[in-house]
Amino acid sequence: MNTCAQTLMPSLPVQAPAPAAAVRHLPGDLAIWVFIFAELLVFGVFFITYAFARSNNVELFNAEQLALDRTSGAVNTVLLLTSSFLVVRAVQFAQAGESRRAAPWLAGAFACGGGFVVVKLFEYAEKIAAGVSLSSSTFHMFYLSLTFFHFMHVILGMVILVAMWNGARNGRYGPDNMNGIETGAAYWHMVDLVWLILFPLIYVMR
């Protein structure tokens, strides 16, 4: 009786519910990984576009690159690397069932993030005073857009760190409840990773 309806419908077989078999452990929530993937894609496309734009105008890009403040960039690299290390320590404490001892490490990571923000703000203030704007050149457009887009990610990451710190202080994490802290940690490492590509690409590589 269903034949006619079936010819008009793509036929898809009914599946039995998937067995809850051994699944490989993915740290944190699957959703954060899809999100991280999407974020990396946006940054990735941005980086590739930068490379194209640069190859069309190497001299200008080099000259303006030289004017960037590599010292503050390097300081920020150290800050983010340190903070990532601190987050790793915090996750290890949570894994060991010592959620409360994870909290100070997360606070330390937050402080490093704060340091990054302050350094970046000084850098921006100086550049803007020197007449750098989104419209002053293609290189400046990329420099400001990319670093600012990343800057916003640092701020979001710091908000997440506060939530993790709060959870750790309340003893929420432990070997059987790692989802929250791993999810946040994955995000923070992503923020770090993007900077590790961004810094050499925009500030150093010629």
Partner: peptide, 18 residues
Amino acid sequence: TPQYWQWWGSIFSALEPI
């Protein structure tokens, strides 16, 4: 509008199909 929109618009909207 300022020229940087050509970059921003192209890059972000290229990902809108996702």
